[in-house]
Amino acid sequence: MGSMLSGAEAVSLVRALPGVDAVGLEARAAGLGTRSIKKESKAQAIDLAIAMIDLTTLEGADTPGKVRSLCAKALRPEGDAPPVAAVCVYPAMAATAAEAVAGSDVKVASVATGFPAGQVPLDVRLADTEAAVVAGADEIDMVINRGAFLAGDLERVFEEIKAVKAACGEARLKVILETGELASYDNVRRASHLAMHAGADFIKTSTGKVGVNATLPVTLLMMQAVRDFRAATGTQVGVKPAGGIRTTKDAIKYLVCVNEVLGDDWLSPHWFRFGASSLLNDLLMQRRKLTTGHYSGSDYVTVD
């Protein structure tokens, strides 16, 4: 894995990418959003969406107790519902999470690299990453240096991602582009390809900590990027929209996009994730509604 390209080569490839027409991209996303997913296909989509969740808590107020209860829910969301893909926590909580999910298929994802702003020196970001891996993180969610990206220093962004990838060791690397700060769809496409050339195992939309988080058009664009990257290099990269996806209806729109843009190869928790916290409860309530015919309400699902 990882690119054989130098920073300069990657940057020149990225700068030569075709443009994105914003109106057309948004129209395509809206079109896919009108698919009507009912009955057995809805049941299938709900369970798949649950299995793709990175159940997340990223608050200053997080405690080991809260993380343990998050992990319990991740392992057994409810009844015969499948476990989620991973729990996503701060590095300080990674060890607690690793202990809580030990022996299961649920992964521990840890944000790192000075999440969410990344405004700390590179050596601190790398140390942050290594500490999370040592604490038991299977996956690292890093943030890119948006300042350098927007200033045009793409090579620096590339080298930093490469360095974090090296610090990850065996852990899979999710690269958060923070698309809400990248200003244009063209930039999202460039950042996606840059991250993939630098060795990203996943490209992820957002930290969930800024005004605009995952949107369907941005995620669709990133899906087109991973599709094109595999066609060009043979390397498959995952996609993770994060932040703002709260309802079953929204989650199903994303799955429809995966299905129609990327196909079966990406329709698994190994290649597609939802970064979300409240989404799981809505999926569980809709799941129940399919079996009982009733939509219960927030008192009937657990707060964490």
Partner: peptide
């Protein structure tokens, strides 16, 4: 050749 290629395909 300088078209926004994914949107052109949609078009």
């Amino acid at each position: 050749d300088d078209a926004p290629i994914d949107q052109a395909v949609e078009g």
